[in-house]
Amino acid sequence: MSTPAVEDVAADVARPQPLAQPSARLGKPRIGRAAAWAFMVAILIVSVFPFWWALRTGLSTNGELFAGEQSLLPVGYTDNNFERVLGTASDEEILESLGRQNTGSFDFLQSLQVSVIVSTAVTVGQVAFSAMAAYAFARLRFRGRDQLFFLFLSGLMIPPIFTLIPNLVLVKNLGWLNSYPGIIAPFFFMTPFAVFFLRQFFLGISREVEEAALLDGAGHFRTFFGIIVPVSAAPLATLSILTYITSWNEFLWPLVVARDPARQPLTVALGQFTAQQPGTSPDWSGLMAGTLLAALPIIVIFLAFGRKVVDSIGFSGIK
């Protein structure tokens, strides 16, 4: 049965009587809706509870935690853990919140700096260069364009582990181990997804303004920067946010490239930190404080630009 027929029938049947409200369609409207909301609320609580639990733990002292004190609020309230993570705590404060000598630590601010530098550089480079390539694929005509685009797209199918080893060999050859260029380079120039994402938007832009500019003698660079980029501010912003978050979350590549703590981003530093923790009585409160602080930039970005991120889901299904 084809769709138009269904819709015609639907229209015909529906016309004589007013349409039922969606809620009225439920067998037992009130109970059904209440149960549905209860389920949704439960899912929402499950989604945010771990963040609250990390905050609550980060504001507790290890002594109280290990005493088995369970409460939805911090136990033995202290903000020393956050100071410990940021490196501003005194020895007495460390002893108070940790309850023992410090074992294992990492320089949070140093790793924060690495994360910020890497994510910023990757985002700027990747979005700019992918946009330029996407413009060429969407608007310029040259021999082999479609074949080249297809080749780029096939990069989507290469899993990261496959290029991990050869890329590491390459970066080592270049002498870039434990360096910013080594961590940044593989993501700096393009990703197949970014090119694909932007090309889709560029294809949707009306050609008329561009053609007028070209007729006026503007080159492709002026057309691109003067017309395409301003018109595409929204998708460029969305892609930048997604790229920044993806880069912030990257773990495996910096783990193998940056063995030197001075070049480890927060994800790697945190992962290494747990490996230094003893199996019995680990520093839970300090770890949760650090974990939360490491997630904070992402949470802030999300609070500021959440709508763009939410709206981008479903655009292509890839991100």
Partner: peptide, 29 residues
């Protein structure tokens, strides 16, 4: 629209990245 001559500069950075960090490593792998 000018063929490869104008496309070249738009594609250059992405092409460098693609060849260096996708195509070449895939074959080298």
């Amino acid at each position: 629209h000018g063929g490869w001559r104008s496309a070249f500069w738009f594609l250059l950075p992405a092409l460098v990245g693609f060849v260096a960090f996708y195509l070449y490593p895939a074959l080298r792998g």
